[in-house]
Structures are given as structure tokens and as C-alpha cells.
């Protein structure tokens, strides 16, 4: 009956600029393309001897990781440093009691230090969105992964990888293979791929790991990997967590690899020039054969370096959106003040 804050719009300013980066869902093709274009331009700066650009000079970025991460956190750290920001890394183990209070208390404490941007990873879906709604205006939130919901910077670096290796995203057929159910990466990828004009997004896995509702997001569901891989341009493999066996979602790693592991034989069903991607860290012999992971079609390591450029792009865009919004607000307020002065002047 009631309508609430649209999670996809919380991240935009009134004039449609990015001010947080929470999800790829609901963002326009133009905005996603702007992120990719800016990231592209940062890739060239990374190849220079002096890699820093001054876009975030004087700003304080806090890496707020409630969940462990090595690569995502370090690429965010590098990205912030290359934008000339000051960066603080906080690894906060999740408190077992009164989680909400801890999160709010943490936030208030960090805000008291005048931070300008939080990069947040949290085990609860919606955590980044929640924080974006709670923080002081002017502070940007970058979602570095929330529960199963979204991991938008990973998805965008994957889009950049596809664009750089396949020329464009329009018209491509992409297969995402594995544990779709628990994957925030897959959800963010599907939204971005659909918006950017991919021809078809296939999700491949057993019914225990592929919710039937994925079709509502516009993906086609394949339980047979051979059929699903036939004639695709891009294969994205997802990491299989060990606890899926104890959760009774799968019988064994061995059976999973037999059915859904990417081998050279299965990859041969895709187009000859298909690329293989993986958000990492990879489980060799569980979801991907070493021969494929290290093979000539694999672009897995390229993804990591593009990750820095994409994170630089969204951090720069969100900060500039925040600055513009604050500027617009203060202009509006000073206009308002002017009016008041005039009126009181007239009265006097």
C-alpha cells in the first residue's frame, strides 16, 4: 500500500548524478557508461610512472569492512590513494549482540572524525542502503558488498572487462555459472548487463543454487551446463563456498565439479573467442579447471587491475555528486537567506 524510499534512487542527486554507489539496479545506461568511460581513462593513468590524480585530495575515505576481504579492500585502498585521498582501514568483526546498535554507534563515531566517504562491506543485505539513509548529508557511501544483495563495483569492473575484451556489451550472450542464490555479484551483474544491452544473460547451476525468481530479473535459467554454455560470448564462473555442502545444497565438491566445473571440453561449446571471467578468489578443481583458469581465454587477472580503475571512477563520481548537491543546497539556502534579508530590510 505505502511506497517507500526507492533503493535505486537513494544513490542519485535530484538532477540524476551519482552520490552514493549502492547497486547497479535502476541506474541508466548513460550513467553506467559514464562509469565505464571514466574508468577507461583511469586505466591509462595507472600505466604512468606517477599514478596519482588529485580528484579526492583532502578527502578522508574510510574502508568499513564488517566482513573479511583482502582483494576488494586493497583495491579500494589503492583506488583512494591514487585519487589522493587519505584512507583509514577498519576491520570490524561483527558483534554477536545488538548488531544494529553497533553499526549505528560505529557510524556516529566515524562521522565525528569528519569522514567524507565510507566504503562499506557488510553481511546483511541492505546494509549499505541503510547506512546511506543514516549518514550526514554530504558523506558518500560506496557499497563493497552487502549480503546477497549487491556488489556493484565488482559488476562494473566485469562490465569493463567485457567491453575491453569484446569491444561492447550490446549483443553479447553471457553465462553466469554456479552459486547464483548466494551471489551479490551475480545480481549486480544481471542488472548491469540488462541495462547495457546484453543480448542474453544465462544463469547456470542446480535448482538448489539458482532461484527460479532469477527470471524476474531477466535472466534465462539453465540447469544443464553444456546447453547453457553453447554459443556464449562470455563465461563468468562464481566461487563455490565450502559451506554449501553442509547446508545440504550440494552433495559434494566432486559431483559439483563434474556437473558445473568449467573444463576445456565444456568451454569448447562456447564461441571460439569466448572469454572466461571469475570474481575470485578461485577454487581450482572445484568450479574451474586450472587449465582454463590459466588458459588463453581467461581474463581473470585483467579483472583485478580494472577493479582499481572502476573503483576510482565511482569514488570520484560519488564525491563530486555529493559536493555538487551540498553546493546546490547551500546556494538555495543563501538565496533563501537573501530573500529573508530583503523582506526584513523592507520591514525595517
Amino acid at each position: 500500500m505505502t511506497r517507500h524510499s526507492d533503493p535505486t534512487q537513494v544513490q542519485l542527486t535530484a538532477d540524476g548524478r551519482l552520490k552514493h554507489f549502492l547497486t547497479t539496479e535502476g541506474l541508466s545506461k548513460e550513467l553506467l557508461t559514464e562509469i565505464l568511460d571514466l574508468a577507461d581513462s583511469f586505466i591509462s593513468t595507472q600505466e604512468r610512472a606517477v599514478k596519482k590524480v588529485p580528484l579526492l585530495r583532502g578527502k578522508t575515505v574510510v574502508n568499513l569492512f564488517f566482513e573479511n576481504s583482502t582483494r576488494t579492500r586493497s583495491t579500494f585502498e589503492l583506488a583512494a590513494k591514487r585519487l589522493s585521498a587519505d584512507i583509514l582501514n577498519l576491520d570490524i568483526a561483527r558483534s554477536a549482540t545488538s548488531k544494529g546498535e553497533t553499526l549505528m554507534d560505529t557510524l556516529w563515531n566515524l562521522e565525528a572524525m569528519y569522514s567524507d566517504m565510507f566504503v562499506v562491506r557488510h553481511a546483511d543485505s541492505g546494509a549499505a542502503h541503510f547506512i546511506a539513509e543514516q549518514v550526514t548529508p554530504g558523506v558518500a557511501i560506496i557499497n563493497a558488498g552487502d549480503g546477497r544483495h549487491a556488489h556493484p563495483t565488482q559488476a562494473m569492473l566485469d562490465m569493463l572487462t567485457i567491453r575491453r575484451h569484446k569491444g561492447k556489451i550490446e549483443g553479447q550472450t553471457i553465462a553466469i555459472v554456479g552459486d547464483i542464490l548466494h551471489s551479490r555479484v551475480a545480481r549486480s551483474q544481471i542488472h548491469a548487463l540488462k541495462t547495457l544491452g546484453a543480448k542474453e544473460v544465462r544463469v547456470i547451476g542446480p535448482a538448489t543454487l539458482v532461484p527460479k525468481e532469477m527470471k524476474d530479473l531477466g535472466a534465462s535459467i539453465y540447469c544443464n551446463m553444456e546447453k547453457g554454455l553453447t554459443d556464449v560470448d562470455v563465461v563468468i564462473m562464481l566461487r563455490l563456498q565450502k559451506e554449501r555442502m553442509s547446508d545440504a545444497l550440494l552433495p559434494s565438491e566432486g559431483e559439483y565439479f563434474k556437473l558445473y566445473g568449467l573444463t576445456e571440453a565444456k568451454l569448447a561449446l562456447a564461441k571460439a573467442d569466448a572469454i572466461v571471467m571469475h570474481p575470485g578468489p578461485i577454487n581450482r578443481g572445484v568450479e574451474i579447471d586450472s587449465a582454463v583458469a590459466d588458459g588463453k581465454q581467461s581474463v581473470i587477472l585483467n579483472q583485478v587491475s580494472y577493479g582499481i580503475a572502476v573503483r576510482m571512477a565511482v569514488m570520484a563520481m560519488a564525491m563530486s555528486g555529493q559536493v555538487a548537491e551540498q553546493q546546490a543546497l547551500s546556494n538555495k539556502n543563501s538565496e533563501h537567506d537573501d530573500t529573508k534579508t530583503t523582506i526584513s530590510g523592507a520591514t525595517v
Binding site: S98, K99, G100, E101, L103, M104, D124, G126, F130, Q134
Partner: peptide
């Protein structure tokens, strides 16, 4: 405080 938390928490 009990409601001021991410949805699942």
C-alpha cells in the same frame, strides 16, 4: 534502536 538496523538485523 531495535528497528534502526539493516533489515535482517
Amino acid at each position: 534502536a531495535a528497528k534502526k538496523a539493516p533489515f535482517a538485523a
